[in-house]
Amino acid sequence: MQNALQLPAPHPGLALPAKQSLTYSVDWRVFSAGTVTFHQEADGDVQRINVVGDSIGAVNLIYRVSDRFQSSFNRRSGCSAEFSKQLIEGRRQVNSDLKFDYAQSKAILDDRNLVSGMSKHQETVIPSCVSDLLSAIFYTASLPLQAGQSFQIPLFDAGKTIPVTMKVEGNESIKTPTGTYQTVRVQPTADAGVVKNRGNIWIWYTDDERHMPVQMRARLFWGTITFSLTNIDQSSY
């Protein structure tokens, strides 16, 4: 088994939304680069997440991005069930489906490059419970977030289970188009995988029982990308 790290169960006092849509503007340096919408919906014991991300404006002319992601995790345990993506990034087009079979202790990946026609099937041994890259953002919201503390998530990424440390750095007031929020700032760090390769990453969650992510930022070698909350779909409540 690659990693014996246990995933803490979601805190019963911090409710995951039954239905919610959050839309963000995406800014790269001083440019408006795109929009991203995260939709969450409870389906029994399963929390389903769908993401739509598209580039806009001048960025669209240089490097068009039209990405779709889907993931789900268990609302009681936090364990991911599946993660899939359909990417159009410039000339690159890739579809990927990842399923977690805990009974067989396997992660099963099927990947297809729509441009070259190449396919990949991969099966990897996993521990009894892992998270995926998308679910981890909202799973983290289900845990107590107290400044100065940290916890680890066994994250399956790039064919490996990687321990990701979620460091709760402190409190901060954040202004977005939807208002000003008192937040708690969390920084994910890891020794390998996408989290490491994306430079420095921060997520600002509201400092209340919702723990709603109102801002996300990745500081990369070629610039900084910031996601800022522009709309909350209140019809879901």
Rank of each mutant, 00 (worst) to 15 (best):
V184W: 00
R185P: 04
W204V: 03
N200C: 10
N197F: 10
G170A: 02
M216A: 12
E172M: 02
N200W: 01
Q215N: 09
P177W: 04
N200L: 12
A190W: 06
T178N: 05
D208Y: 00
T178I: 01
G193C: 10
F221S: 13
A192H: 13
P177H: 10
N197L: 12
A218S: 13
T189H: 01
Q215L: 08
R210Q: 14
M216C: 10
R217E: 15
R185C: 00
T183C: 10
K196A: 15
Q182K: 05
T180C: 02
K175D: 14
Q187A: 09
V194K: 09
M212G: 00
I174T: 04
V194S: 12
N200T: 15
N171W: 00
T183W: 03
G193T: 13
R217S: 15
T176M: 13
Y181T: 03
R219L: 06
F221A: 11
I174P: 04
N171Q: 13
V195D: 09
N171V: 06
T189C: 00
T189Y: 05
G223V: 08
K175R: 10
W202R: 04
R210D: 13
W222R: 08
H211C: 07
V195F: 02
T206A: 01
K175P: 06
M166P: 08
A218F: 06
E209R: 05
M216Q: 10
T178A: 02
G199D: 12
L220E: 12
P188N: 09
Y181S: 05
K175M: 08
T224S: 14
G223L: 02
Q182D: 07
P188Q: 09
E172T: 07
Q187P: 00
L220G: 05
D191R: 14
Q182H: 00
R217I: 13
R185S: 03
M216K: 06
A192C: 11
D191V: 15
P177L: 11
M216D: 11
